[in-house]
Design a protein around this nucleic acid. Structure first.
Lengths: 342, 342
DNA sequence: TTCCAACCTGTAAGCGCTTACAGGATACGG
DNA sequence: CCGTATCCTGTAAGCGCTTACAGGTTGGAA
């Protein structure tokens, strides 16, 4: 394989000069720069990242540990992050955890072994070992998709609790009092836990002590939203609204309720959280909370690169997660009479 | 930072032994293995991947170059690939091209610099430079999401042309003759081009020479499917079916036609291609072609790892992409009278 | 007992690059 | 014309690991 010294020989300069035109072109005279560039092209030189990383103690890559990219909102964020990194000559390594804490630990370890210069984590509750490792090695990291002013770690995200509260308040302001909640598992998922808590706290502030039976926990998919909604309605036919802690679940609920012969929003309201693209197209369009995924991806890149280059960066950045009012929510029927079917 | 020699010192053995327990534990006596393992834990040793890669000429990572993971089918495939790699101690580096050929070249170069041991590409038409680079360096690679027996490069995928043909045949067999096609750009996208061609060839085999005006090319999103369908219907109110080269477009068409007051499938049939999760939940559920994304992801991992380890692997593996008949397609109305609205 | 094979372990030579440092030109002011 | 500051370039010492090779033990066959 052609290597740096071959280029140097061909260009009639030292390896140091070749390395310089690659890494600090401004520190080299135009004449040498040209010769070297030419030689590299003629030989089809591709630099060896392992050697570069070993010598420079920088891998020019960053790692991202997310629960999943197959479903939900993370894919777009990861993509935006990757694009941004590419602009700066960095590579993205990705690992998924499937919401499994031990896999998260393994993923971080694996990324550290690969020498990533920075790491994105999702959420803020992680194995203390993870923080310890990261800190010990001095690797910049950032928690994402959750903003928490009191947490001691850097983060880029939004306030899940507050925006979920706002979503629930919207339903309560419309007049709903019997609200079912479909949620994905809250264990090991602080974002969803915060959303759920936000909803419950909001209910409480309206004097409603939500019984556990009106909360159902299911997996992440649309089909789970369906079965969740069905179970909820069977146990609580009095419900006038169903709120999901994620769009996939709300969308499932929408379909299932529709199949049960209920009209949305006239018979029952439905609201979600995430603002998936499909939500604005459904009939009815889905009321939800917009999550600024692309923004997060980009900010993560900027934050991490800044830290890597030694710039001082704000520890925390809070982004907006705004309510998006659409057609799936409306006032409950004035009478409690309902045309149930299905 | 604690390094191999520290572990060796602590365990009272040579660095070679430490390296061996890490890479070839069976070539080391149990006694030393234990001592070393203990020492590593006590010191919190994390191995340096750059040094390892440089010395062993292997990075234990593979690269994936996909058009996008934010929309469409690739995210799940990438996720499955990543999971599989993780099982074998490999890391996944990902790059997206946004369907831009020059970005693909850059991505491959960047991955090669990082020393990936193998590369997944999507489609089979790539800059010859890419194949040249890959071959020159002897890096295993595989084209995906397209199976083509005649192509000279290894691939793991399905026959886009044939399954698109089958999809169109389904419509024709139902009795449709006036079919509109909504497609995403075919330039630089051989999979979509093959699907479109499959549809056109099928039409031709039924004696139909599809006029260009009944084919509309739009971007990849649901909203584009909507506008595509609307434009098609405006120009060709006689259409009895709309076929999309991707589910996102078909789903957009479904929504738009519905908004136009048309009943699906009684007024007009709609079919897509990809089998996105949402398709089976819509009302009507969407007729489509199932794409075995997870299978592809897994096979890519197995193929690449096999090649890396020097095993001989089948050059080409063809997977099934089967028709999934659902509710959105039916016989056209017997009379040509139509209740148009909207 | 002797010899050889089998099995472990240690020694040390790189892997291909970056970069501190030294040294040679060059330019400019005095 | 000399001294000094400035700017480039080259020399060479690693970066932390893997692995070929050599050398030492052990056990069994002769």
């Amino acid at each position: 394989m052609v290597q740096l010294s071959d280029v140097a020989k061909r260009a009639g300069v030292s390896t140091a000069s070749v390395s310089r035109v690659l890494n600090h072109p401004d520190k080299v005279s135009p004449r040498i720069r040209e010769q070297v560039t030419l030689a590299m092209e003629e030989l089809g030189y591709v630099r060896d990242g392992a050697a570069r990383a070993l010598a420079s103690r920088r891998s020019y890559s960053i790692g991202s540990v997310v629960p999943t990219i197959g479903i939900g909102i993370f894919a777009s964020g990861v993509e935006r992050l990757q694009q941004r990194l590419q602009e700066y000559g960095y590579q993205l390594l990705i690992s998924t955890t499937q919401y499994d804490a031990s896999k998260e630990m393994d993923a971080v370890r694996s990324l550290m072994e690969r020498g990533v210069d920075g790491i994105q984590l999702v959420g803020q509750e992680h194995d203390p070992q993870i923080y310890k490792l990261l800190t010990a090695r001095g690797i910049p990291y950032v928690n994402t998709y959750q903003y928490d002013a009191d947490n001691e770690h850097p983060c880029i995200g939004f306030n899940n609790h507050r925006s979920a509260w706002a979503l629930m308040r919207h339903l309560l302001e419309l007049g709903h009092r019997e609200v079912g909640i479909v949620t994905s598992p809250t264990r090991l998922n602080d974002r969803i836990a915060a959303r759920l808590q936000g909803m419950l706290d909001c209910l409480k502030s309206y004097g409603i002590d939500q019984p556990a039976s009106r909360i159902i926990e299911v997996p992440h998919r649309i089909a789970d939203g369906r079965s969740g909604a069905r179970a909820l309605m069977r146990a609580h036919p009095e419900l006038t609204a169903i709120c999901g802690t994620a769009d996939a679940l709300a969308i499932g609920a929408l379909f299932e309720l529709h199949d049960m012969g209920l009209k949305i929003p006239s018979d029952i309201s439905v609201a979600g959280y995430d603002d998936l693209e499909i939500g604005r197209h459904l009939d009815p369009t889905l009321t939800t909370v917009h999550v600024p995924v692309e923004q997060i991806g980009q900010r993560v890149a900027d934050y991490l690169l800044g830290r890597i280059e030694g710039r001082s960066m704000p520890m925390k950045t809070e982004l907006e997660a705004n309510l998006v009012l659409r057609e799936s929510t409306a006032r409950p029927r004035p009478a409690s009479v309902k045309t149930a079917a299905g």
